[in-house]
Amino acid sequence: MATAIQPYLTFEGNCEEAFNFYKSVFGKEFTYIGRFADMPPLEGQPAISPEYSNRIMHVALPINNDFMLFGSDNMEGSCGGPDLVIGNNISLSLQIETKEEADRVFGALSKGGTVGVPMGDTFWNAYFGMFTDRFGINWMINVEQNTDKK
């Protein structure tokens, strides 16, 4: 079963500015911030262009002990996500405890929808997938494989 559901915000190049603002409001520190330049090359995808390399790939900001706010910049036409349109720039991110449960939830929720990233192991040591369900809601499914590292 999912252990948490968190909002995941997508920005058009100003994620770092937005999250520095949120950080100042909530008085918390990022638990992770990574840039597209930190990503290893994706099979079948072109190299990250200099235009996108310094943009935020993923940032995590705790709001309180139970709630995280996640975000990234959009990288038009890649990484399996939908093209950014203000209004679709939020996804629901499910944190799930096991790969088996993640596969079950992913399969059930994505039925009739559009899979952007099939469930699979990632370079950030998680089991992860993304899709848009048949109702147009964007989802991310994540299983932390090493809870000692965020």
Rank of each mutant, 00 (worst) to 15 (best):
P41Y: 03
L109F: 14
E16H: 07
L109E: 10
Q45C: 09
P62R: 10
D38F: 01
F19N: 10
P7Y: 00
W124T: 01
G71C: 10
Y8H: 08
T122Y: 09
F128P: 04
N64S: 06
R55G: 11
L92A: 06
I56R: 13
E101K: 11
F128K: 01
V85H: 15
P50M: 00
G116Q: 12
M140N: 10
F106H: 00
N146H: 01
T147D: 02
I48R: 12
V117E: 07
S91R: 04
I48Q: 03
S49V: 03
D103S: 01
G81K: 05
Q95K: 06
K111E: 14
N142Y: 09
M39K: 06
H58Q: 05
Y32N: 10
I137M: 07
F131L: 14
V25T: 12
P40M: 09
P82L: 00
L94W: 03
V85I: 15
Q145L: 15
R134M: 07
N138L: 00
E12A: 14
L109V: 06
A18Y: 05
N14E: 08
Y32T: 08
N14G: 11
D121G: 14
P62G: 14
R55F: 05
Q45F: 13
P41L: 00
S53I: 04
W139A: 13
G136N: 12
A60Y: 04
P62E: 14
P82S: 09
S110P: 10
S110E: 11
G77C: 06
F36I: 10
A60W: 08
F70D: 10
M130N: 08
K99Q: 08
A37S: 15
A37M: 04
T10D: 13
A108C: 05
P50I: 02
N65V: 01
M140P: 09
V143F: 12
F128Y: 15
G27S: 06
M39R: 07
Y22Q: 01
N142R: 05
G136L: 13
N20R: 01
M39N: 09
R104E: 08
F70W: 08
M140H: 14
G87K: 10
N138H: 04
V117T: 13
G107F: 12
N89Y: 04
S53A: 15
E16K: 14
I48K: 04
V25W: 11
N20Q: 14
A126V: 04
Y127L: 10
R55W: 06
I141M: 12
R134N: 12
M119P: 10
A60K: 12
E12K: 14
N125K: 13
M57E: 12
F26C: 05
F135H: 15
G136Q: 03
S53E: 11
T98M: 08
M75G: 07
